[in-house]
Nucleic acid binder design. Sequence first.
DNA 1: CCTAACTCCTGCATGC
DNA 2: TGCATGCAGGAGTTAG
Length: 288
Amino acid sequence: MPELPEVEVVRRGLDAHVTGRTITAVEVLNLRAVRRHEPGPADFAGRLAGRSVVAASRRGKYLWLELDGAEAIIAHLGMSGQMLVQPEGVADEKHLRVRVRFADGGPELRFVDQRTFGGLALADMVEAAGAAVPAPVAHIARDPMDPAFDPDAAVTALRRKRTGVKRALLDQTLVSGVGNIYADESLWRTKLHWARPTEKLTRAQAGELLSAATEVMTEALAAGGTSFDALYVNVNGQSGYFERSLAVYGQEGKPCRRCGAEIRRDPFMNRSSYSCPRCQPMPRNPHV
DNA sequence: CCTAACTCCTGCATGC
DNA sequence: TGCATGCAGGAGTTAG
């Protein structure tokens, strides 16, 4: 599932293959893919023709192609979204949702998404907390890879939230970029149970958790991202290799690599949390 | 204002 | 074999 490292891999691919090019035509093959673009698919396609891409940017799991004229194509990959750069004429992917053609006649950009949780939209660039971002991203906190990321402010935000630590870590308005996989990995590295109430966290513990998240995502990025069941691929259609390095996520029943206890899976927010029962003991007052 | 549940979607694995 | 169910889950929306 695309979290920060996977989205960053895609951003780099887009920067290399799309930045500097001029759009000639956009084809929306699935309405749901542009549902966040309020004026509708015709408006989306019509307003993109003739525009130039000046940069590929990212905050957390959001990425966007900045255009001339203070607008951007904002993209969220959801669970299964892919940005593919394909030569014209290559057979359409089964779940091709949007096609973008360019004036140079080179490879086209394809948004492919099986589960359709992702989508594209055209948005205005706005000023938010000293940064220029598309309007729909204004409420998203800076991620740990952002040069302007403020760890102390993030620690304060996490501890102010009255909930379990994993819920807080997944809240993109506090710290962005972390999803279910890297949340579990970060908690394991910090030896914290996912249901630990945030108000019981010391500043030091919250800081260690953020450091662990930064560390694990940095390692994943170096490996090209994490991938399962071939749903996530980078801009050229290649999967990452970080899944081999996961300590707890998806490892139910396997021995903890630190203590040997069997990794457990708990239901959490209609999904799963993986943890080591010995390294990450359940708190006395779990916040489920 | 705050937190948590709900909802969207497709494909694969599992069970009866 | 076929059908129902569960699971993967990010984030906007709604409810309390």
